[in-house]
Simulated assay, not measured.
Amino acid sequence: MEPIQAQMVFCCAEQWMGGRCWQIEPWGDGLRLDCGRATTGVYCMEAVDSGENGFCWSRAVVEADLPPDTALRVYAYASDSRSWGEWSDLDEAIRGLEGDPLPVLREVFGPPAAESGDFFIRPQGRYLWLMFELAATGSASPVIRALRLWMRGDHMVDYLPAIYQEEDFTRRFLSIFNSMYADMERAIDGLPGQMDYEHTSGALLRYLASWVCVEGGDSEEALRAGIRTALPDYESRYTVEGVRRSVRRLTGREPILIEHFQVSPNRPDCGDPELYRRLYGEDPYRFFVLLPEDTFSSQREREAFQRDMEELIPAGMSMQMVQLKSCIQLDWHTYLGVNSRVGGYVPAAIDEQVTIHYDTTIGGASHE
């Protein structure tokens, strides 16, 4: 049997706007209870019109993120009329409620239809109202992502003799297996899409990233970006640009890379061989990575960066990291915030017979 199902899906912010929230707020394309401000919240949908009196509603699935110490209750009410009691329009009455609406709404909806997100809707009628109650006792906030309503379609009971099709118990009992079968079919049909790193998320996205040796990443978008450029990144991984890219991804800063041949004290055009030997040594298999002083917030973070870089540099090479301090180079035209000019160095011999002038610089070498 190939099931054909007609569903109504609520998964956009605009679709939730017609309902009424109490202590529940819009969150992306869904709804969230902010546990920092409230422990319980209610959202009541506006009427869903099936267009058919006496309509037999079927299955409903609420896709929600429910961390530990959170709960979801779903209430359902259906009728062929939009009125209830003294209210001529139930939607307008719900929108006009003030204060704590739960006591009034529980009179309308009755006991919860489900304590989870997958349930069978028993009330029948043209119009359907659903109410979601979210609760949290911990620090994590529950989020409702989407709602799926099965409107019509193939059912296992449709393939039985007519005498069984009229039995409500038989339909509800077979709905359990019908739901399991339909879910498996949908999962199989959606498997190719789940293998697309541009659309999948969570553990499966990290699994796909491991196929192309992409690790880390502060966000799922960073993982997708790494997968997207995995091949060219691999081809240039151990080049100068590849090492610069690795440093940039690990630190978020633009590094300065210095190779030995650029600062070799043995070059004919080297202006100060002794200085270069003191700063960069003479090891031709070592390169330097220059980063700002505030790149790392702790010594542990710095050491973790150096360990990660050991896997991302060419074999036989060693890396030395130098963190640069911010400084100001004084020159003849340096502005110090006052109307003054930095002059040249004036040597002075300090004794009891010499007056030190205000523009005298003490210290340094004679060539300065």
Rank of each mutant, 00 (worst) to 15 (best):
P3Q: 04
Q5P: 01
A6G: 09
Q7A: 12
C11E: 15
C11M: 10
C12D: 15
E14S: 15
M17W: 10
G18P: 08
W22E: 06
W22H: 06
Q23H: 04
L31P: 03
R32V: 09
R37F: 11
T39F: 10
G41Y: 10
V42K: 07
M45H: 14
E46P: 12
V48S: 02
S50P: 06
G51V: 13
G54L: 10
F55T: 06
W57A: 03
W57Y: 01
R59N: 07
R59I: 02
A60F: 01
V61M: 07
D65P: 09
L66F: 02
P68M: 00
D69I: 05
A71C: 05
Y77G: 04
W87A: 10
D89T: 03
G99T: 05
D100R: 02
D100A: 02
D100Q: 00
L102C: 00
L102S: 03
P112E: 15
S116V: 03
F119I: 12
R122Q: 13
Y127S: 01
E133W: 03
A135E: 03
A136V: 01
T137Y: 06
V143K: 11
I144W: 09
I144V: 15
L147R: 11
W150H: 12
R152I: 11
D154T: 15
L160G: 10
L160K: 09
I163N: 10
F169A: 15
R171N: 03
F177G: 12
N178M: 00
S179T: 14
M180P: 06
A182G: 00
M184V: 13
E185W: 04
G193W: 00
Q194N: 03
D196N: 07
E198A: 09
E198F: 00
H199M: 13
G202R: 00
A203K: 04
Y207D: 08
Y207Q: 08
W211N: 06
W211R: 06
C213M: 14
V214Y: 01
G217I: 04
T229E: 15
S236L: 08
E241Y: 11
R244M: 10
L250T: 00
T251N: 13
L257C: 00
L257D: 01
E259R: 01
H260Q: 02
N266K: 09
N266A: 12
L279Y: 02
L279R: 04
G281I: 01
V289I: 07
L291V: 09
P292L: 13
D294G: 12
D294F: 07
T295Y: 05
E301R: 12
R302S: 11
A304N: 15
R307S: 10
L312P: 04
P314I: 06
G316P: 05
S326H: 07
S326P: 06
S326C: 05
H333Q: 14
G337H: 02
G337D: 02
G343P: 01
V346T: 13
A348F: 12
D351R: 08
I356A: 08
D359E: 13
T361W: 13
G364V: 04
S366P: 06
H367A: 08
